[in-house]
Amino acid sequence: MYAILGLLIGVAAGIFLQPTLPAAMQPYLPIAIVAALDACFGGLRAFLEQKFSDRVFTVSFVSNVLIAALIVWIGDLIGVGSQLSTAVVVVLGIRIFTNVAAIRRALFHA
């Protein structure tokens, strides 16, 4: 319940407060979002498999986001930023699909 409340509060804050992101960080936000999605689905999967630990969840979320942004940042520095961001999106996408498949199996046995 708190989780859903938190999500709603975050969306509402984004819409109504209109915070602005520093321009230097803007290229990394999409990648960070994908990483965060991956962490969220991973957390739900762990919960359904009765392995959920809020510490692991927090650490995985933060590290996912930071590492994704870091990879893209380094890629930008060495001139392969767009390729590396594609790679990150592909890998995280595969992980999201795997997680969702596990969640589906746990919830529906299908």
């Binding site: 804050a13 979002i33 962490a39 969220c40 809020d54 927090t58």
Partner: peptide, 18 residues
């Protein structure tokens, strides 16, 4: 755990709307 998840999901929603 719910509180932690809510904080993280809030960050997530914030980032997506941003």
């Amino acid at each position: 755990g719910h509180l932690v998840a809510s904080v993280i999901l809030m960050l997530c929603g914030l980032a997506v709307t941003l």
